[in-house]
Nucleic acid binder design. Structure first.
Lengths: 208, 208
DNA sequence: TGTACATCAGTGAACGCGCGTTCACTGATGTAC
DNA sequence: TGTACATCAGTGAACGCGCGTTCACTGATGTAC
């Protein structure tokens, strides 16, 4: 059931001042394990350590506990997601194109990093809350772009409400298509879904 | 972290011919544990047995293994869901009202049985597939009603495509609102979301 | 109607295993003199 | 320039625990005679 422990090729020990490198390697490994399992429950200390080619004990030089490691890995994934979205937002000047680019980046992230996506948005993290609800930053980005789009359209809908509509629908598409993807005839092309979403929610240039 | 084992008030042993009663009680307990945890991973043999007021060994009189128990519990939940949807569908004659009733029943099920909903639609079950992809039956029901609605509207859209739109969006709403519900200011009233979904997807009576 | 017995729901102790975590350690490397 | 030493990245063995599962059992109850 579990993938072989994979002792990894013999790791070279990090030089003196740079022990923090392992921290990043562990976060990478943990996020990747989440990505593979799509769940947080099987990402154990031992599995993460093995994936990083290190003994379980080494984890405790960088994280206080198993829980601490998981939290850090989730936040790490959120950062990656936020960067992807920010990159998409910066890729276009026109508000319509910017919103479209963000939509495509969202779908792509969900497709390419399914496990991470699920851990962030779908599988609720069964960990005690620690910091601010992270990931809301990305939502604020969305609201900002939607505000621009509505202004350009001369549309007086509430940007937050429209943003929630966009987000919920996007999430439904990527989450359901991901988890029930084994029924191939059922699903239309995701890009078609996305295009229809734009039409239905009227967030493209006005047709007159 | 885990709830106290709760040995339950002393169970009365089932009479001779009716040992199958425990089977149902175990399925109830397992589904309820899923509902509480929103995940399948923590629903162990011992926890289910304790919740049913029975020793862990007793489980093996009705299920071959832990996995077997989990599978049966998931299917049990799907049956409950299908019944809820069928009940809603039967509650109205008018196609528009029928679709609306199904939508409300869907949201209500997701709200009242969050954990079960998540196990069914959101948390992919990490179990080997066994029978037909269950739960698709409910989707066929949806397609049937949408077909009626489109016919009544004299609308030539593809019923399956529209059904996928309805389902993905509904799922996104209930899933995101459920998992990120701790941010109260963010979310509009679910009923408002549902009403707007009907407007945007044009699945209500035509306005002329 | 009474009794011996087979049936069957459920128990209790024990197993091997993998988990998170601890503890004392090793050995390469930068630094002080 | 050479050497003693403190630092620090990482190890290995061991712990207690809860898990899924097995095995031999108990004791109430319906049934055959």
């Amino acid at each position: 059931v579990a993938p072989p422990p994979e002792p990894d090729t013999h790791r070279v020990r990090n030089p003196r001042g740079q022990g923090d490198r392992l921290r990043v390697e562990l976060l990478d490994a943990a996020a990747e394990l989440m990505a593979v399992h799509g769940s947080i429950d099987k990402v154990g200390v031992r599995a993460v350590a093995a994936a990083a080619g290190v003994s379980p004990t080494a984890v405790y030089r960088h994280f206080e506990s198993h829980t601490d490691l998981l939290w850090a890995a989730v936040q790490y994934s959120f950062d990656e997601f936020a960067r992807a979205m920010a990159g998409a937002a910066a890729s276009a000047d026109d508000p319509y194109e910017r919103l479209a680019a963000m939509g495509e980046a969202y779908m792509q992230f969900a497709r390419d990093h399914r496990g991470k996506y699920r851990v962030m948005f779908s599988n609720r993290v069964p960990l005690p809350p620690r910091t601010e609800p992270v990931g809301m930053h990305a939502f604020d980005q969305l609201v900002a772009v939607v505000t621009e789009v509505l202004a350009a359209r001369d549309d007086d809908r509430d940007p937050r409400f429209v943003s929630v509509q966009v987000w919920t629908w996007m999430h439904g598409i990527v989450d359901l298509m991901g988890s029930h993807g084994e029924v191939p005839d059922l699903w239309p092309d995701p890009d078609v879904m996305l295009a229809e979403l734009r039409v239905r929610l009227e967030i493209g240039p006005r047709q007159h």
